[in-house]
Simulated assay, not measured.
Amino acid sequence: MLFGKRQRTIRRIAIVEDEPLVAFDNEHMLTDAGYEVVATVDNLADAARVIQEQELDLVLTDVSLSGDGDGMDVARAAAAKNIPVLFVTGNCPLEAHALGIGCLAKPYTGKMMKAALDALDSKLQGRKVKKLPAGLSLYEQA
């Protein structure tokens, strides 16, 4: 299509978030924006299961999670299947730079999340992201 919307690279997303209201808001905002939320989980064990069993285009994970493990462990599990990870957290540790595609700083709005996903989609399609949306940091991939 000459003037149609471009095809999204990111369609199927898993949310890993232990704050119920944030998880609920993200799930509904992403669904309303046309993404398929494959699963919303709050711990490493459930996230690892979803990553192994589902076809995913992106994992959104907080760094701090309930139970054993954290978002870094989620990112390692996703990396083993070549699934990009966007950290959504108040404070992204340096280790995240090697494990994720970027970080969206909390607090963020639905508009900020959608803009961040558009920027990630462009990056994943090999296009240069000219201006980063508010709150988003992108990392160079090794």
Rank of each mutant, 00 (worst) to 15 (best):
A33Y: 10
N82V: 02
H97E: 15
N82E: 13
V22Y: 00
Q52N: 15
K5E: 12
F87H: 05
V63M: 06
D25Y: 10
K111I: 07
H97Y: 08
A115F: 04
F87S: 07
G67Y: 03
N82L: 11
V59A: 04
M113D: 06
V88M: 13
Y108W: 12
A80N: 13
K106N: 10
L65T: 04
A39Y: 03
E19N: 06
A23F: 05
A47Q: 07
E53W: 00
T40V: 15
R11M: 01
R8I: 08
N43S: 15
N82W: 01
V38R: 13
G100N: 05
A48F: 02
M112R: 09
L30W: 08
R6Y: 05
M112G: 01
A23R: 11
R76M: 13
L99C: 12
Q52T: 14
A48I: 04
A105H: 07
E55C: 07
R11D: 01
V16F: 11
A33G: 11
A116H: 00
K81D: 07
Y108N: 13
R49I: 14
M112K: 06
A115H: 05
V16D: 05
M29F: 13
H28C: 02
I15K: 01
Q7M: 03
A39C: 13
S64P: 00
P107E: 14
Y35T: 02
K114C: 09
Y35S: 08
K81I: 01
A45H: 11
T40I: 02
D18I: 01
A39K: 08
D25W: 05
I10C: 06
M72G: 06
A48W: 05
L104E: 06
D32F: 08
K81V: 02
A14H: 02
E17D: 09
G110P: 02
A105R: 11
T31R: 15
D73H: 10
T61N: 07
V41K: 04
F87D: 03
L94C: 03
V74N: 03
L86N: 05
V85H: 01
D18H: 08
K106L: 12
A79D: 12
R76I: 10
G34M: 07
D70I: 09
C92R: 02
I13V: 15
F87N: 04
A115P: 05
A77V: 08
E19K: 01
A79V: 04
Y108E: 09
L104R: 01
V38Y: 11
I83G: 05
A77I: 06
A48E: 15
Q7V: 14
C92E: 07
V16W: 04
L44T: 14
Q7S: 11
R12I: 06
R11K: 12
A39T: 03
A96L: 10
Q52K: 15
G67M: 10
G71C: 14
A116E: 03
P84Q: 07
Y108C: 11
A75D: 00
A14N: 01
G71H: 10
A96P: 10
D18Q: 02
T40C: 15
D68K: 13
D73R: 09
R49W: 03
E53M: 14
V88H: 03
T109W: 06
G90P: 08
L86W: 04
T61V: 11
L21F: 14
A47C: 13
A75Y: 01
A75I: 04
L30R: 03
C92P: 00
V38A: 14
Q54W: 04
A105C: 09
D46C: 03
V41G: 10
E17L: 09
A39E: 11
I51Q: 10
N82K: 12
D62S: 08
I101T: 09
V16T: 06
